[in-house]
């Protein structure tokens, strides 16, 4: 284990913890971006360069922007406020997560240490190496995923499309008014 590994581990865990504990949704989102970026760095180290770039572009870029956009849209930055109806849920969740981690760690302990400098067959995880696989054995899977992505796009559009409602004021307008009133005070 090198110093790099240790550093990345600390970064990953710290950013992940921040992402699940921070009260402010925007902050939590930013912590998640940090987590994703650290993960991309780890990918580079694990000879998955293409994946690392995709992680940065798609996850840290597109997906997280979407998240932040929705947070902003719904004025949801102040998340997890107000009365918690299930206050005992937090310790229970911690306990369950810990138990899960222990069980998983125990399962992984069976996986033996692999030669640290494996033969460099991965080709650095570059598109040149991945492309053959993607459009070879995995072609149909890729096509399926593409179809799914398309269907999801359609679904998302139809979900968010303003419904034909009878003279109903859009909730977010009310929300915004309330918000503005509070600011005014």
């Amino acid at each position: 284990m090198s110093a790099f590994d240790l550093l990345m581990g600390v970064l990953l865990i710290a950013s992940a913890l921040a992402a699940v504990t921070l009260k402010n949704a925007v902050h939590a989102g930013l912590a998640l971006v940090a987590n994703f970026l650290s993960l991309a760095v780890v990918y580079f180290a694990l000879e998955a360069q293409f994946l690392g770039w995709i992680q940065i572009i798609v996850y840290a870029g597109a997906v997280m922007v979407l998240f932040l956009f929705v947070i902003m849209l719904l004025f949801d930055a102040k998340a997890d406020v107000g009365l918690d109806r299930l206050p005992w849920m937090r310790p229970l969740a911690a306990a369950l997560a810990a138990a899960f981690f222990l069980a998983l760690a125990y399962a992984f302990s069976g996986v033996g240490p692999v030669n640290p400098l494996a033969d460099v067959k991965l080709g650095g995880g570059l598109p040149k190496a991945l492309g053959g696989l993607l459009y070879g054995n995995w072609l149909y899977t890729v096509l399926l995923v593409a179809a799914l992505l398309f269907a999801a796009t359609v679904a998302a559009v139809s979900l968010v499309q303003p419904q034909i409602r009878k003279a109903r004021v859009k909730p977010q307008v009310l929300e915004r008014d309330r918000e503005l009133e509070e600011v005014g005070k």
Partner: peptide
Amino acid sequence: GYVRVYGALMVLGLVVMLVWGV
């Protein structure tokens, strides 16, 4: 009707299954 209760129960089951499997 609390989604989180259902989720917690599901995770509990998952943990039990995992422990048993391991």
